[in-house]
Structure formats: structure tokens, C-alpha cells
């Protein structure tokens, strides 16, 4: 049975009253702190050697078509794990404990993240970037039930006590599937769009809290 790979993305927004608070944006998969593929041969598009797109385009059918796309997957449904950068932290430089409340908004629209090169383009908001333009989306495989994707979801608030001279970190790790390939679009037998595409489907995210004493962080920073 086809597994439903439909997930949630969790953003942490702030309701912060503390002056020591800072948000670090690391939502796009290309800016994850680390990404580890089960298959060590997988290379992200940003790291492709020169002319890799052209090399993969040779795998596309040679016959020209009146209208429509040819696509070739260089990798499909490759499992990966990632560690996102710290998405949120609050520093308490004071001498008293502070009770900090942070707010979560769960939104599933960021579970699919896409990148394109050449004349292929991705549309969507700055953070979501979740649509390939020119009808390419309809040609690609998404092994999850996009149709049951929810956009408005829950908001949670969590209260945490942060000791004096300490910093609270919210860390995110996750898992997903990686897809990559090249595509050509024909318009009256002429190539109108061409390039490489890449997308990830994030299936699970894991969240953790860590509070570290500032002296430890400061000494690490000095080193």
C-alpha cells in the first residue's frame, strides 16, 4: 500500500518579551546545518560538477514533441536525515530566572521545498517556495497525499523557566525524501524551458529544548 507521506512543518514564532531573544531562520533545506543521505552517492544540485545538467539531459528522449515535458530523475525518494540550525533561542543575561513563553504554529505547507535551475523556476512565498512554474509540478511524482495537506493548524504555547545567565535553544531535526532531476519543455517542437529541479518532502520533525549556561557558550565562542 502506498504510504502516505504527508507531514507537518513546525515553525517557531515568537511571543517574546525578553530583549535577549533572537530568531535564526533556517527553514529551507539548503540551509540545514547538516543533511545526511542514506545513499552516499547523492549530491545536492548546488554541489554538482560543471555540465552535470547537460549530462543528465542526454538521458532525456531525443525526439522533439509538439507540446509538453520530458523529465529524468537522477535520484528519486532518497531517504535523508537533517539537523536544522537552531531555529530559536532566548538568552537570559540577568541575575534572576525568567519565565519565557514561546509560541508554535504548525503549518504543513512547508513540507515540500523546491529548487530549480536554468530556465525552470519555483514560485511561492519567500519561505515556502513550493511550486514549480510552467506546469512542471504536474509532471513530477509526489509520493505523499498533497491533497490532504493542511495550511492552517494549531498554535501551542510553552512556558519555560530560564535560569540566570543561561540561553534556551529550540533545536530541530528531521527526516524526509529527496528528489532530483532534469526537465525540458517543448513548445511547437522547440525547447522553451530547460534545467534541473530538486525537491524534498519532509516527513517528520523532532524538536528538543536545551538550556546552556552562558559562560560555557562564551568560552566556546572565544575558542
Amino acid at each position: 500500500m502506498k504510504k502516505v507521506l504527508f507531514t507537518a512543518f513546525f515553525c517557531v514564532f515568537l511571543l517574546c518579551l525578553s530583549s535577549g531573544m533572537k530568531e535564526v531562520k533556517a527553514e529551507n533545506y539548503r540551509y540545514f546545518q547538516s543533511i545526511e543521505f542514506e545513499n552516499e552517492d547523492v549530491v545536492m544540485m548546488d554541489e554538482w560538477p560543471d555540465h552535470q545538467t547537460e549530462a543528465y539531459e542526454l538521458k532525456l528522449p531525443r525526439e522533439r514533441k509538439m507540446f509538453g515535458w520530458y523529465t529524468y530523475y537522477s535520484c528519486k525518494k532518497e531517504p535523508f536525515k537533517y539537523v536544522a540550525d537552531t531555529i530559536y533561542y532566548v538568552k537570559n543575561d540577568g541575575t534572576e530566572s525568567i519565565i519565557h513563553t514561546f509560541k508554535y504554529e504548525e503549518s504543513e505547507e512547508k513540507t515540500v521545498q523546491k529548487t530549480a535551475s536554468g530556465s525552470l523556476k519555483v514560485s511561492g512565498s519567500q519561505t515556502t517556495k513550493n511550486k514549480f512554474k510552467y506546469g512542471l509540478d504536474g509532471e513530477l511524482e509526489y509520493e505523499y497525499e498533497e491533497t490532504t495537506k493542511s495550511k492552517v493548524t494549531e498554535t501551542d504555547q510553552v512556558k519555560v523557566t530560564i535560569a540566570p545567565n543561561s540561553t534556551l535553544y529550540i533545536k530541530v531535526m528531521g527526516e524526509g525524501y529527496f528528489y532530483q532531476g532534469v526537465a525540458k519543455k517543448y513548445f511547437f517542437w522547440a525547447v522553451s524551458k530547460r534545467g534541473a529541479f530538486e525537491y524534498v518532502i519532509i516527513t517528520t520533525e523532532y524538536y528538543s529544548i536545551e538550556i546552556t549556561q552562558n559562560s560555557v557558550i562564551d568560552s566556546e565562542a572565544e575558542q
Partner: peptide
């Protein structure tokens, strides 16, 4: 407090 440890989506 109730902390969300993981997230897989509402339907899943």
C-alpha cells in the same frame, strides 16, 4: 509544560 516533541501532520 506541554511540549510538542515531534510533528508528522494532522492526518498522519
Amino acid at each position: 509544560d506541554d511540549f510538542r516533541f515531534m510533528s508528522k501532520g494532522l492526518f498522519v
